[in-house]
Design a protein around this nucleic acid. Structure first.
Length: 485
RNA sequence: CGGGGUGUAGCGCAGUUUGGCAGCGCGCUUGCUUCGGGAGCAAGAGGCCGCGGGUUCGAAUCCCGCCACUCCGACCA
């Protein structure tokens, strides 16, 4: 690899030459999406949507395992409902889409297309909750939302996107806080186990928190260009929404109380993260757990042995098809080399080549996408070896991503050094911050970096308190800074 | 929303300066020969030149307006 890289992947801009273009080339050429005729909107094509379906399945399982049920709420929200929570409406007002007409007539009250569903869900919750026995109420919704974005990028920021949003209601502040943290933990475990994306979890600063929340928690991932991406959030909404939407319950002590709420979500942005964390100059590298295809079988035809090769390839595809997402690429008119490049671009984790030599040796040649490593697997041990290999690939992708993140995480206390790193190396900057919003604001203006989070754990990498990187005031808390998407 | 760039066949582009038959490469279709890292030959198909208006005998080309994509800012859970 390396020297003739360009030769193999003519269709993709090299990652180091132009990261943005590289990303766009990949999402288009791998047929994950295509631009739709509405600004900032995309069609998610089967190859991209299959990843989303796998994400949904793997995450939905976890959401249900933690006691939540799925439900569905309306796409449209009456203007008056959205406006009930002042901070919330202020946060979303610039980016909502309005419905002003229906059936050819002007509506008496405008509707917003949901940018998030707190308002409409709280409205319904106020009717469903009367007693402490109704709590906790643990509901999740898979849906689309619309935010009229000015600067869009496929999967990372689109005018319409798909996500899940959990909305829970609890008797006490302690329970709500536990819930918000529990779901953030679910996201972290999910991202690392299934997506092979290591994340840092922590608390958002006041400036960066969700409009209307009391506290926002986040998982932050580092992309291959050294920029951070918020991969999931979880909010402790406090009682703000309960108060304005009049959600009350009669507690065991016979007192009428406002409950405590949370909301949490991850979106199709995770697909963008997969691309930017794992991809290389040849294209996608998908973790086996979420890859639409885990294995592609490429038969190597020759004049004489054609039928035998195809027969064996079909046999092996059928065998593996019982337990894995596998495809036999028996297309005519494409050379094996062409197919290799095509499936590598599409990020299929494992390729099995079956040719005359393999037939002779009673096995297949296996090639790992993430390392390019070739090995021969005797047919006898195929059924045991394949799952092991896929797990190794999954693990290796996580290991590579972790290693990259470690290399790109800079412990820094000097502001000049802080600025130099952002200019020259990027990545996460772990430092101290006094907590003053004006320091945060100044740093943003001077360096274009933002506080990604106040991490839960720093495990000895940095002292528990230290002087603020900007103003030098003592007793600053550890924070991660980065330029972000 | 401000500044720059781009829009011509599925993709990448030339043609626009100086108005005059719609072009090239790749891909696609069909056939034959091939096939262990993007095969070869032959014959084909494919165009509201982003959209709308204007100037002109005549517009991909000149003028006005709009839209989309893209990069950089601003904004953004």
């Amino acid at each position: 690899m390396g020297t003739n890289e360009k030769e193999f992947v003519k269709e993709i801009t090299p990652r180091n030459e132009d990261f943005s273009q590289w990303y766009l080339d990949i999402v288009l050429k791998s047929e994950m999406m295509d631009y739709a005729p509405v600004k900032g909107c995309m069609a998610i094509r089967p190859y991209g949507y299959a990843i989303w379906e796998n994400i949904q399945q793997l995450l939905d399982r976890r959401i249900k395992a933690t006691g939540h049920e799925n439900a569905y709420f309306p796409l449209f929200i009456p203007e008056s409902l959205l406006q009930k929570e002042a901070e919330h409406v202020e946060g979303f007002a610039p980016e909502v889409a309005w419905v002003t007409h229906g059936g050819g007539e002007k509506l008496t009250e405008r509707l917003v297309v949901r940018p998030t569903s707190e308002a409409i869900i709280c409205q319904m919750y106020s009717r469903w909750i009367q007693s402490w026995r109704d709590l906790p109420l643990l509901i999740n919704q898979w849906c689309n939302v619309v935010r009229w974005e000015k600067n869009t990028r496929p999967f990372l920021r689109t005018s319409e996107f798909l996500w899940q949003e959990g909305h829970t209601v609890h008797c006490t502040e302690v329970e709500a806080e536990e819930e918000a943290l529990k779901m953030l933990g679910v996201y972290k475990e999910f991202a690392e186990t299934e997506l092979a994306i290591p994340v840092i979890s922590g608390l958002k600063s006041e400036r960066e928190k969700f409009a209307g929340a009391m506290r926002t928690y986040t998982i932050e991932a580092l992309m291959a260009d050294g920029r951070a991406l918020q991969a999931g959030t979880s909010h402790n909404l406090g009682q703000h929404f309960a108060k304005v939407f009049d959600i009350q319950f009669l507690d065991k002590d016979d007192e009428l109380k406002y409950p405590w709420q949370t909301s949490w979500g991850v979106s199709t942005r995770l697909i963008g993260a997969l691309i930017m964390v794992h991809g290389d100059d040849r294209g996608l590298k998908l973790p086996p757990r979420v890859a639409p295809l885990q294995i592609v079988v490429v038969p190597i035809f020759t004049k004489k042995g054609r039928e035998e090769v195809l027969q064996k390839a079909k046999e092996i595809t059928a065998l593996l098809g019982e337990n894995f997402r596998v495809k036999l690429d028996e297309r005519e008119g494409y050379s094996p080399g062409w197919k290799f490049n095509e499936w590598e671009m599409k990020g299929v984790p494992l390729r099995l080549e079956i040719g005359p030599k393999d037939l002779q040796n009673d096995g297949v040649t296996a090639v790992r996408r993430e390392t390019g490593e070739k090995s021969f697997i005797p047919e006898k041990v195929l059924a045991e070896r394949i799952p092991e290999l896929l797990e190794e690939i999954q693990g290796e992708l996580l290991r590579q991503a972790q290693q990259f993140r470690e290399e790109k995480t800079h412990l820094v206390s000097d502001y000049t050094e802080f600025k130099r790193i952002l200019e020259e190396e990027r990545g996460f900057l772990l430092t101290h911050w006094c907590g003053d919003p004006s320091c945060e604001e100044n740093i943003k203006e001077e360096t274009k970096s933002t506080i990604r989070c106040l991490p839960f754990e720093v495990s000895g990498k940095i002292s528990k308190t230290g002087p603020c990187v900007r103003c030098g005031k003592e007793e600053g808390a550890p924070v991660y800074f980065a330029r972000a998407y």
